[in-house]
Structure formats: structure tokens, C-alpha cells
Amino acid sequence: MPFLGTTLNTVGLLFLTHAVYSAHEHTATFTHAALPLDVTFELLVSIAMLSAGIVLSSPDLKPIQWSQWAAKIERGGRHGEGKWTREGEELLSEGDPYAFLGLDKGIGGKGEGRRGFWDVRGKRKEYAEWAREGAK
């Protein structure tokens, strides 16, 4: 689909440019004559192709129902979308907007929610223990 969309956009743009150029040339040369039919036809075809191409190459629509949108996030998890920041970190797709409440791992869960209350010493101790066991 993206290939078809890009092709239609490219060809449509070429036709549009050509049609506009032809129309300009024609009016410059024959000031009082009507525009030939083929130029009008080319213009209309190029616009139809461009419209189709833009629709085809647009990103997928999001589910408009809350439960389906949330289900899509929950099922698919976060995945890369082919864009990176300057530091080399990939931009991920939309995630759970309520993850900051830190409630998704249950009571006493080891999630990363509630960053304001981040328990730095606990996490440090957990890592140090893991490193010690790994060194053994």
C-alpha cells in the first residue's frame, strides 16, 4: 500500500506540473483561444491521482471507541515507528496513558509508575544484589 500511494503521488505531481505548465504556455501563446480539452483532462486526472495517493499513503486510523483503542494499546504493547531522536532512541507508539499511576502491577508491584515517589535506594539495592549474584 505505501508503495502504491507513493507511486500515485509522484505520477500525479508530474502530471499536475505538466498540466499547469501547458495551460500557462497556451494562454501565453494564444491569448483569446479556449484551453484545449487534453490540458483540462490531464489536470483533472492528476488531481484524482494525487487525492487517491494521499489517502492511500496516510497512516492507519486510530480506533474511535475507547475500549478498542485501549485494547489495541494493551495487546500490541509499545513498538518502534521507524523514527529516531538525535541520541539514537527510537520513538515508540502510544502507550498506556495511566501508567504514571503505577497501578497496573497490583499492590506492592515493581512497576515504574509514580515517578514522584521513586524509591531510589530500593531500586539500587535490588540492582546491587543482582550484580553480586551474577558475579558469583
Partner: peptide, 25 residues
């Protein structure tokens, strides 16, 4: 290990992978 959007649970190996990106940053 993504520093921009860290995972919702970070295990020690993930934490190590995250912190190993430090020299580049």
C-alpha cells in the same frame, strides 16, 4: 532498553542496558 520511553517494569538487566548508553549521551 529505550531511554526516551523506558519500559513499565525495569529489571536489573534492563537497567544495566539503559545505563550503558551513557557514554554516547
Amino acid at each position: 532498553a529505550n531511554l526516551l520511553t523506558p519500559p513499565t517494569t525495569i529489571t536489573p538487566p534492563t537497567a544495566l542496558a539503559l545505563s550503558q548508553k551513557a557514554p554516547l549521551i
